[in-house]
Design a binder for these strands. Sequence first.
DNA 1: GATAAATGCAACTAAAAAGTTGCGTTTTGT
DNA 2: ACAAAACGCAACTTTTTAGTTGCATTTATC
Lengths: 122, 122
Amino acid sequence: MPAPSPLVAHDRSDVIHASDTLARVFAALGDPIRLKLVAVLCAGGALSIAQLTANTDISRQGVTKHLQVLAEAGVVRDVKMGRERLWQLDPAQIEGARQTLDVIGHEWGIALQKLKLFAESP
Amino acid sequence: MPAPSPLVAHDRSDVIHASDTLARVFAALGDPIRLKLVAVLCAGGALSIAQLTANTDISRQGVTKHLQVLAEAGVVRDVKMGRERLWQLDPAQIEGARQTLDVIGHEWGIALQKLKLFAESP
DNA sequence: GATAAATGCAACTAAAAAGTTGCGTTTTGT
DNA sequence: ACAAAACGCAACTTTTTAGTTGCATTTATC
C-alpha cells in the first residue's frame, strides 16, 4: 500500500470523491438565478422557458443559458412538446451532492468525537 | 394574502429560500480545487496554507485565493498561530446547504407521490 | 543578528461567465 | 394563408474568476 502523506495527516479526499462532475453540480447550484430555477422545478412541474423566464429579471436567452448550465450538470432535463421546450428536475445529481455534504458533516463529527475523547483521556 | 402566480403553479422558492448567501456556499464548493480543500479539512485538522498547497498543482497564492472564497462563503475559518495561518472547516454553512438539497429532494418526492395518486385515480 | 520559512499585498494576464441584441426557424391558431 | 407565440443560433460587450509573478513583512531558528 502507498505510504501516507507526510504533510497532511487525515486526507479524506478518497472518502469525499471530489470529482469534477460533482463540482459541476455545485457550481450549477452556485448562482441565485439557477438556484431559484431549481426551487421552482422541484415542485414537479415541467415548465417552458417562457414560463421560467417570467420569474426572473433577465432575458429569455439568459434563462436559456442558465438552463444549459444546469443541464450539463445533470440537474435538469428537457422534453420537447410541440413548439415548447419543457424543463423538469432530475434529482439524481442533487441527491449525490446531498450525500457528499452528508459525508463531510459525518467526517467532521467523527473528528470532533476523537478530539473530545483525547481531551478527556487521563 | 397575495394572489398566486398565474404562470407558475407550484413555486416552492419560498420553501427553498434560494438566498444569495446559500448560492455563495454552493459556488464555493463548485470548484474541484476548493472541493478537495474541503475534503481535506473535514477530517478535523487545522492546516497551514503551505500544507494545503502541497496537495494541489497551483501556487500558494492560488490556494490562498481559493481559501478566501471559501471563507467568504463561511465554509472555512482561519486561526493565526505564530507565523502560520491555520485553516479549519466550519460545518454550519455546509449543513445549511445539505438541508436545502434535502428539501429539494423531499419536494420532488411529494410531487411524484401526487402524480402517482392522480394516475391511479379511477 | 543573520537566515530561512510562512505569509501578505499588489499588479498583471488570460480565460470563463453573464447577459444582451438581432435575426431566423418552427409551430400554433384563426 | 398569415400572424403571433416559442424558441434557436450567433455575435458581441462587460464582468468575474483563476492563476501567476514579484516583492515586502513577520516569525522562528541557529
